[in-house]
Amino acid sequence: MRAGGSARADASAERVRIVNWVLLVEDDLDHRLLIREVVSRMFSGVELHEAGDAASAIAWVRDRAKVKGGLAHGVVVLDLGLPGPSGFHFLEWVREHDVLDPLPVVVLTASENPMDAEHAFHLGAKGYFQKPADFRAYIAIFERALSLAAPGDGPPSSDGPAPGTG
């Protein structure tokens, strides 16, 4: 099955190439470990950065924005239920800072809630997913999420992100 997984990773390589990094904002350590496994196994070459709450996620993005084009080719995967300010706070913050405008944020939450989803989309989220209880199901979600990554002005992007598999 290891072989099968690798084959899948190869198939994703095409769209993964344009994604350099993922910022995972997640407080549950188990879930972080799980997602780390998914990314390292299936999306090799993608840098995974982790933040445990909205404040450190904001600090990381601020830091990253200092480098020109630092926010290109990346995507933020955001949990909504965070200690302290919630994921919505992060979404608001991103929306208030126009420079970050191309920064795509997708929500990944333990239980989807239509009202939360609506709110998140209203605040500019590009996607809203429920965490699956099966690691293979993460692949589809991450393919969708990574396809939303901002092309930015870095090298490989004039043809835009590849369409997701849905």
Partner: peptide
Amino acid sequence: TYSVSHDLRTHLVTIGGFASILWSEYRD
């Protein structure tokens, strides 16, 4: 009911996620 289901699901994500990694990567 909603918050119980939500919390149940949080743990289920962990159990199912890791169990499925074990199953597909370490089964052999």
